[in-house]
Amino acid sequence: MTQSKMAVSDCYKACLCVLLMVFGLACGQLTSNFYGTSCPTALSIIRSAVVSAVYKEHRMGASLLRLHFHDCFVNGCDASVLLDDTSSFTGEKTAAANTNSLRGFEVIDDIKSKLEAACPGVVSCADILVVAARDSVVSLGGPSWTVELGRRDSTTASKDAATQDIPSPLMDLNALIKAFSDKGFTAKEMVTLSGAHTTGQARCQLFRGRIYNETTIDTDFATSVKSKCPSLGNDDDLSPLDVTTNVLFDNAYYKNLVNKKGLLHSDQQLFSGGSTDSQVTSYSTNPSSFFQDFATAMVKMGNLSPLTGSSGQIRTNCRKVN
């Protein structure tokens, strides 16, 4: 192909991408200004709804962040986690890692309804999850980052994939490293993303074994948590993942690990004489480093196998396909 023909071809592709973006379609890649023309109020609508939800209940910030994580780790960031069961598939909500645990669906529904009123059929549920996660972190005092947009929504979900892919709170360090590596993350990025546990809560059922059976735990901390989690019963009673500043997004999670105050077995595994100890120590004393790395890792997570172009659809109701 001659240089002149190549130039014409490149120009055609560029013009086509501009036209596609005007109509809210993807050009095969994500862009930060994807809704700049098709729905210019999209980001402000999401931000306002998230800030309101977190103001009413601080825990909702952690819940929305967790929704994003559990979505992207299962077949990519495609909003499959939001789908209810149908006659043709069993969704991800009833997977062991999600049932009686994931929450915030009503907040996403509220955001979607507002966006449909402003820009019908334009903003995907997958993009809502990614933006809501960022805005939740910011609303709790954490870092911000530029969210790339243009994802489309899946038309199916998989309980089996959710069961297999989402890391368990009972995992040892090597299993955690592998689970994240399978999604393209380094061990350092695994430690970074685990810092999301600086906010939020966990059910007694998930940490009972640690507080009653493990020795790598501060005695006073274990005693205090046992008062909320007896050896039998009360499986759904909650305790904060970060015993010190649970309603803030900061680096206290790592300080707690250094002091053997990780609530979950998988948390304390990051500081247990293994290969990730030094990274935990670094973040425990350098919050700015953690914030910077967390923002970068979240952008990478949001890029896990997104549907773009003509793949998937823009669901008008995040709970079901069109």
Rank of each mutant, 00 (worst) to 15 (best):
V8W: 02
S9C: 03
C15H: 10
L16S: 15
V18N: 11
M21Y: 05
M21V: 13
V22M: 15
G24W: 04
G24M: 09
L25E: 12
L30T: 03
L30F: 09
N33I: 11
N33M: 10
C39E: 03
P40Q: 10
L43P: 01
L43M: 15
L43R: 14
A49Q: 14
V50A: 11
V51G: 07
A53N: 07
V54A: 02
K56P: 06
R59W: 00
R59Y: 06
R59A: 09
M60E: 12
S63T: 08
L64D: 07
R66Y: 06
L67R: 04
F69K: 11
D71T: 08
C72H: 01
C72W: 03
N75T: 01
V81G: 04
L83S: 03
D85Y: 10
S87R: 09
S87D: 15
S87L: 14
S88I: 05
S88G: 10
K93L: 03
T99D: 10
N100F: 12
F105D: 04
I108G: 08
D109V: 01
I111Y: 01
K112H: 06
K112W: 03
S113F: 05
A117L: 12
A117I: 05
A117N: 12
A118V: 08
C119S: 13
P120H: 13
V122D: 04
C125E: 00
D127I: 01
V130M: 04
A133P: 08
R134E: 13
D135Y: 02
V137Q: 07
G142H: 08
R151H: 09
R151T: 08
D153Y: 04
T163H: 08
Q164M: 10
I166Q: 04
P169S: 11
M171H: 06
M171W: 11
L173C: 08
A175Q: 15
K178I: 05
G184V: 10
T186M: 09
T186E: 07
T186K: 08
A187P: 01
E189F: 12
V191C: 01
G195K: 12
A196L: 07
T198C: 10
Q201N: 13
C204N: 04
F207E: 06
E214A: 13
T215K: 14
D218A: 15
A222V: 09
T223S: 14
S224R: 13
P230F: 11
L232A: 14
G233S: 04
D235G: 07
D237L: 07
S239N: 06
S239P: 02
P240H: 14
P240D: 15
L248W: 10
N251C: 12
N251H: 15
N251E: 13
Y254T: 09
Y254N: 10
K255P: 00
N256V: 04
N256D: 12
L257E: 03
V258T: 15
N259V: 03
K261I: 05
L263K: 10
S266K: 00
D267R: 05
D267K: 07
F271M: 08
S272D: 13
T276D: 04
S278Y: 05
Q279I: 11
Q279S: 12
T281C: 02
S284M: 01
S284R: 01
N286L: 06
Q292P: 00
A297R: 09
M301W: 02
N303V: 00
L307V: 09
T308R: 12
Q313E: 05
Q313Y: 03
I314E: 00
I314D: 06
R319K: 14
K320Y: 00
K320P: 02
V321T: 15
V321M: 03
N322T: 06
N322A: 08
